[in-house]
Write a protein that binds this DNA or RNA. Structure first.
Lengths: 342, 342
DNA sequence: CCCGGTTGTATTAACGTTCGCCCTGAGACA
DNA sequence: TGTCTCAGGGCGAACGTTAATACAACCGGG
């Protein structure tokens, strides 16, 4: 801490009151007469006094800080969530501590411990592996307020999220309904233990009575636009037939469209492309992206409310509540009827 | 703080040693014999002890936390910077406190105070108004380590940034050199007191001996893709002639291209578009964007080094150092020779 | 056998706040 | 005059840690 600035003690010495009186005055205690309060406040201003939140936290045993753990900040939807969370927390007087696990389980654990050491009052987490939550459950069992931002219905941990399974199912269903029969899936999640979107993809096929072809399941080497581009390259070079691609986020989908442009594949005439998350870059892409909505405002609003609510429960956490929001399919320009169905 | 977990005292009681011995042992003091140390560490593990960083900060007078203030998290280049800063700081044992000013001077001041109250050891700031830095200079004069992420050569504050003026000049110069004579500028910065890019635009014109037409200067209502779209709408409806547009960030440029697509303006045949920042979304856009580079890695690396360096100066800050990196122009598909010059 | 130096551990005070309780003086009231 | 009440304010402890110092036991050397 740089030259720590003025302390209560300094204000006390300047005004001649005791530290205690100064503290009370600055917090507008009714026990302090108006003119005393005004004199003290004037002195505090003069010294540019700012209460030391560290000392305050030590005695009050709360930091008014919430940890937010993201898997990655390249994904615009995550940064939108981060911004929204930060603003909502700031409005309630909380600071956001923020870390990225960089899609790495060990980092995630390390970050959680770092926040715990800093005594963050609670945490909001995008877990890296949705199915591997023991470390987080342990937190909760220790009475630590945690809210996940992906839903695992039986993890026993509070969560607020979009229903990714339903969203993927809707997206796939849309393609099937428009006559596509061989739909590639570009999904980095399932290999990492996050099967929700692939589940939705499969269930839509099943509901339509159409088999899934495993050779159309591609695992990109990441979640970025560029990895989408190269995943498409892989897919095309595998020489399997397909008329549509469902990518599990908008960035991947945009990379796919870029690939198509470079290789003279027309979207949507030759190939339909569907993304996920409804980012601005997809909505205003040259070929506007068909995608699945992500309700940033509602998610963050519910999640922030929930974690603050958990914090307010001084004596033991209530039973976990899992909220899954139903996403909408947004049909735009990147998908169309299959040629064979026209 | 949720049920605060085990304290030094608890470990002490469990092992029979004093609090002080436990503290020493856990920090591997040479004064503690090996078997004592091991017994104490085992007990600490058993209790799931984690040192209370709040108490530690109070006595050590350092928090090992750095505040990062962004203007806005929708801009991918800022989130890239944020991620990079966070990772570099984490590697050095620092936590990132993070806030967005949401392009609002009052918020910026509020956030700075919040970080100051939390005794962040230093701050990295993207100031909202590059020319209005009194509140930040005051910090520095108070011996607070601050590094700006935009460069103001004579603010008297440390800074690391791209040379935006030079970048804008290169971009404009490229358009002029390829025969464009009426180049629109879509720039939200100059109206807010950040004139660097417009300065570069003007100086390139001057160097080429070509006058700037004020009717081609458009102020978009933000920095997003959508605001780029609507700024273009405004520009087109103004019915002035132009053959190129320089937008001050990639998002705006992408919005412009979307507009063109929808209104049958061919890019680059009918219109050249140049962006700024070199985001992935521009690089892999359907029409790959000509843009100006932003060296995230170098900027964050220099900025983090610098702020840590300032923190290490216990006795007074050294003279400010301003580093401006020279950006490169990346010519891609969205710009081409002016039709009249072909 | 005493002295000085190790070695291992304990005691105490700080860091800047807040909280609970106590003290003092003045006026009200019997 | 003595007692009570209340307003205004002070004192000391606590939060969990670290740093400085103190102490106690042991050891070897003269």
């Amino acid at each position: 801490m740089p030259k720590s600035g003025a302390r209560l003690k300094d204000v006390a010495e300047l005004t001649g009151f005791s530290v205690n009186t100064v503290s009370l005055a600055l917090r507008d205690s009714p026990r302090i007469p108006d003119d005393t309060r005004d004199r003290i406040k004037a002195a505090a201003d003069q010294l540019n006094y700012l209460p030391n939140q560290v000392a305050k936290s030590l005695v009050s045993r709360e930091t008014r800080a919430i940890g937010l753990i993201l898997t990655d900040m390249q994904n615009p939807i995550l940064t939108n969530v981060a911004q929204s969370v930060e603003r909502k927390l700031a409005a309630r007087g909380y600071t956001t501590l923020f870390a990225t696990s960089n899609n790495n389980q060990e980092e995630e654990v390390r970050m959680i411990d770092a926040f715990r050491a800093r005594r963050a009052d609670g945490m909001l987490i995008f877990p890296f592996r949705h199915g591997d939550l023991d470390h987080i459950r342990r937190l909760r069992n220790n009475n630590y307020p945690v809210v996940l931002l992906v839903g695992d219905l039986d993890a026993g941990i509070d969560a607020v999220s979009m229903d990714e399974r339903a969203g993927a199912s809707k997206a796939t269903g849309h393609l099937l309904a428009t006559g596509h029969r061989r739909i590639a899936l570009i999904d980095g999640g399932s290999a990492l233990g996050n099967p929700e979107k692939m589940d939705g993809y499969r269930s839509a096929h099943q509901a339509a009575g159409i088999p899934v072809c495993d050779e159309l399941l591609i695992n990109p080497a990441g979640h970025s636009v560029e990895t989408g581009y190269w995943a498409m390259d892989l897919l095309v070079k595998s020489r399997h037939d397909f008329s549509a691609v469902f990518a599990t986020n908008d960035s991947l989908a945009l990379g796919i469209i870029r690939y198509c442009k470079k290789h003279a594949i027309k979207v949507p005439e030759d190939l339909s492309v569907v993304g996920f998350d409804n980012t601005e870059f997809g909505a205003f892409a040259e070929t506007a992206l068909t995608t699945v909505s992500y309700d940033v405002e509602r998610i963050t609003s519910l999640a922030v409310d929930r974690v603050l609510d958990l914090i307010a429960h001084k004596t033991g956490l209530p039973d976990p509540r899992i909220i899954q929001l139903e996403p909408d399919l947004l049909v735009r320009e990147s998908s169309a009827k299959a040629a064979s169905a026209q």
